[in-house]
Design a protein around this nucleic acid. Structure first.
Lengths: 214, 214
DNA sequence: TAGATTGTTAATCGATTAACAATC
DNA sequence: TAGATTGTTAATCGATTAACAATC
């Protein structure tokens, strides 16, 4: 796969295309041109065509793009055609919210186990009949189940050693909600969600009355 | 204020500098050079100096930067020297988690009221003695209280009309967790947290084994 | 066929990195 | 003063936009 050159910026835009295409499908729109999509999404038509052509020619000259086809193609590109098996570390407020969130599930992101070290939480049901497990059993679980992505929703001090354990067991995808950077080997992917930093960014822009430049 | 030109990229990096400087303070480090910080953060020293100089000369030639001073200066730049008064729309799983999250509070982001339309939830305590209020009273609340930022944690269909109501009442900062883009006037700032999209980005990178390019 | 719109190359714009003079 | 490191200008790199030939 010669995917060496696709930039972070393009990747970040893919889910947004996907969302708009889904909306269009729901509206019953069958075809759309980069120009029309451009107006809806407030990005240039040129960027849309450029972005999509990183992955292949999905359109048809003189016609545009078939909404449903493009929708499914983007899903494939993002790996949504196959379920992702997930575990969640941390059954605190945020962890509970993530576990209960059905939206991920419908997109094929399946949280199948939840771990915590707090004896008070262990054994509690989080979603359906899924119960919080003792984090001591983390390695054993990973050995016996497929784990594509581990979501980390614990305080930052604990996040680093837990990430190390995950990596050691061969987990290659980490969705990190802890307020720290995780040092991992090159073949492990970390996606950070730093809520405080997002809020600070908002605070800055509010204070300085700047809208996003792009 | 001639803040016209500070790019989104720089703003996004500010909270990260802030975090590292906080860590350094906790370690008792008093001064740091862009070179040392560069190694810790895995960004170029050049970028650090360039970024900081957008806001003024905080360093000293031949010496470096005073950690504590720089820390507080960045806090000021991001508006953390003054409390932000927040409200939260939506007392679902995610909303509850946000309301209970003490980290925001310690940084001066104060969630002071929570609204929901669900009669089951109205009246429930969320954090301390803060109870979920009927969203019917939203306008009345905003008229009688300062509201700098409203966090929106409700399904996307409801998010758009609620955002309109907020804007109409003069709220200028929106922290949007709903999976939709909000169309707001130019002087209103929206910071989006699209969790599904973050997860899809992770999925893509995992599937294509790409680490972040930057 | 004529019209429309893509795919793709070229031009522009902006952000990052390198270099170095200023200065503590 | 000599050494270190900033602030800032210049060079490079990459991403976005514009233009247009290819083609449905």
């Amino acid at each position: 796969m010669e995917d060496i050159t696709i930039s972070k910026a393009v990747i970040r835009r893919l889910p947004r295309y996907y969302r708009y295409l889904g909306d269009l499908m729901n509206e019953g729109v069958e075809r759309i041109s980069s120009g029309e999509l451009s107006e809806r999404m407030h990005v240039t038509a040129s960027q849309i065509r450029q972005d999509l052509n990183h992955f292949g020619g999905f359109g048809q000259q003189g016609y545009g793009y078939k909404v449903e086809y493009l929708y499914h193609e983007i899903a494939k590109i993002m790996g949504l055609d196959m379920a992702s098996h997930m575990i969640l570390i941390g059954a605190g407020n945020l962890g509970q919210a993530l576990a209960k969130y059905t939206n991920f599930r419908t997109r094929g992101f399946l949280i199948e186990a939840v771990f915590d070290k707090d004896p008070e939480k262990i054994g509690q049901a989080v979603y359906g009949d899924m119960k919080v497990q003792d984090i001591a059993g983390l390695e054993e679980y990973i050995r016996t189940h497929q784990v594509d992505i581990a979501a980390i929703a614990i305080p930052k001090e604990q996040a680093v050693p837990v990430a190390d354990r995950l990596v050691k067991c061969g987990v290659r995808g980490i969705w990190n909600f802890a307020h720290t950077d995780l040092a991992v080997p090159d073949d492990v992917i970390v996606e950070n969600v730093h809520l405080s930093e997002s809020l600070m960014g908002l605070s800055y822009r509010l204070k300085n009355s700047i809208r996003e430049k792009k």
